[in-house]
Nucleic acid binder design. Structure first.
Length: 287
DNA sequence: CAGCTAGCCTGATTGC
DNA sequence: TGCAATCAGGCTAGCT
């Protein structure tokens, strides 16, 4: 499940292995892996061929690769997307969607995606933040991220705090796993109304978000199966450090109470019933 | 306008 | 054994 630490790990691998290389050809194996590109797969391949990757950037969970043509490749891994470097003679992966060959004849770049929630697109944005992802907020590791703005914007919203953490226009890079982990560290239940969170509590929560993201980044990310891997196909090991996510029924690492699992937006939230009591009242009366 | 949710997708797992 | 239902979940379009 690629969230910020996983995507940043992939970005670093890409930066090392693809910067400065000239794309020789692009092979699109599955049309759904190309996003918002009405001219079609052939055109997508044609506008990229012959151009050199000059950088690898990230905004939240999006990657973008400026080219010397002034265009940029935008990528999102979705749930199961992988960007892998492979020798040209390595057998095709079962879910190989897009293949990039390079003029230097070195390892090719493969976009592999089982569930096709991810995809690539081309933007004329170049080295600037592409317009397609301009709505994505800065992430909390970004030097230009404003803590004060985050606290103010969070408290201005009328929603539940976990929803807010997952809102990529408020703060980017946080997904279901790290949201649950940060809330546990802050002893907050995800259903707590954002407009009732004090400034200090919001600042503490932000600190815990930053803490869990940076610890996971050092560990190379989290993976429960082989779905998230770095560009060399290796999994991270932060899952050993998770305190609540996926630990239903297991003892809380703080108080020993069995971790609870609750339905949340057609998925799951994990929390400690004792450290993170549910708010007493619903967010807001409906009338 | 802000908040919310269905739907996208496939493989592993569970249930009958 | 075999088939069907369930679950995983980031993001966007479109609804209220």
């Amino acid at each position: 499940m690629p969230e910020l630490p996983e995507v940043e790990t992939v970005r670093q691998g890409l930066a090392k292995w693809v910067t400065g290389r000239r794309i020789a050809s692009v092979e699109v194996r599955h049309p759904r892996a190309i996003r918002r590109h009405l001219p079609g797969a052939d055109h997508f391949a044609a506008v990229l061929a012959g151009h050199t990757v000059i950088d690898v950037c990230r905004r939240g969970k999006y990657l973008w690769l400026p080219l010397d043509s002034g265009d940029a490749i935008i990528g999102h891994l979705g749930m199961s997307g992988q960007l892998l470097f492979q020798p040209g003679d390595a057998p095709d992966e079962a879910h190989l969607r897009i293949r990039f060959r390079f003029a230097d004849g070195g390892p090719e770049l493969r976009f592999v995606d089982q569930r096709t929630f991810g995809g690539l697109s081309v933007s004329p944005g170049g080295a600037e933040l592409p317009a397609e992802i301009a709505h994505i907020a800065r992430d909390p590791m970004d030097p230009l991220f404003s803590d004060a703005d985050f606290v103010a914007n969070l408290r201005r919203k009328h929603t539940e705090v976990k929803r807010a953490l997952l809102d990529q226009t408020l703060i980017s890079g946080v997904g279901n796993i790290y949201a649950d982990e940060a809330l546990w560290r802050s002893k907050l239940h995800g259903a707590r109304p954002t407009d009732a969170i004090t400034k200090p509590a919001a600042a503490r929560l932000l600190g815990h978000v930053r803490e869990v993201l940076s610890e996971a980044l050092v560990a190379g990310g989290t993976s429960f199966d082989a779905l998230y891997v770095n560009v060399n196909g290796e999994s991270g090991y932060f899952d050993r450090s998770l305190n609540v996510y996926g630990r239903e029924g297991e003892p809380c690492n703080r108080c020993g109470t069995p971790i609870r699992r609750e339905a949340f937006m057609n998925r799951s939230s994990f929390s400690c019933p004792r450290c993170q009591p549910r708010p007493r009242r619903p967010v807001r009366a409906t009338s």
